[in-house]
Amino acid sequence: MKKLFLLLLVGFIGLQLTAQESTLPKVMIKTLDGQSFSTSDISNDGKPVILSFWALWCKPCQKELDAFNELYAEWQNETGVKIYAVSIDDSRSTARVAPLVKGKSWEFEVLLDPNGDFKRAMNVNMIPHTFLIDGSGKIVSQHTAYFDGAEHELYEKVKKLVGKK
C-alpha cells in the first residue's frame, strides 16, 4: 500500500512535468550492417520524422511498413518526411532482418534494437508502435496497433506539421 502510494505520488509529479514535451532519449543501438548508432542522431534537417517499432514476427507491423513504403516517395516529395523503422527482434532473428528489408525493397532507414534498450526508453509495450516527431525533435503524437488505412491519418498529421493542408 505504501509502495502504491509512492507510485501515485511519483505519477502526480510526472503529470506536472508532462507539460514538457518529450524528445528522443539517447540510446546506443545498431544499424543493419552492425555499426553502432546513437538514437540522438535520428533527425531530418528540421522536417518531421516517423519512428516505428516493429519485428519480424509481427504481421501488422510489416503491413504498416509496407503501406508506408508504397507511399514513401510521394510523402517525401510533398513533405520531406523521413521514416525510421526500429526492429526489436533479438539475436534469434537479427540476422534475418536485413535480408527481409532488402527483399521487400523498403526504402527507409531500418535500425536494430536487439535487447529492447530503445524500446524500453520509449515505453513501447506492444508493437507496432509509431511515433511522429516534429522538426525540432519533439514527440508530437504516437499510436499503437495498425489497421489498414491508418497511414492516411498519420500523413494528415505530417502535412499539418509542415504547414500543408
Binding site: 509512492l6 505520488l9 511519483v10 505519477g11 509529479i13 510526472g14 506536472q16 512535468l17 508532462t18 514538457q20 514535451e21 518529450s22 524528445t23 515505453n123 513501447v124 509495450n125
Partner: peptide, 25 residues
C-alpha cells in the same frame, strides 16, 4: 523520490528541462 521532489521544488529550471514519461498496462 527525494531527488524528484528536490528537482521539482528547488529549481524551476530543472522542471523546464526535465521530462517524465511512462507506460501502464
Amino acid at each position: 523520490l527525494a531527488l524528484l521532489l528536490f528537482s521539482a521544488v528547488e529549481a524551476q529550471d530543472f522542471i523546464n528541462n526535465a521530462t517524465v514519461n511512462g507506460s501502464f498496462q
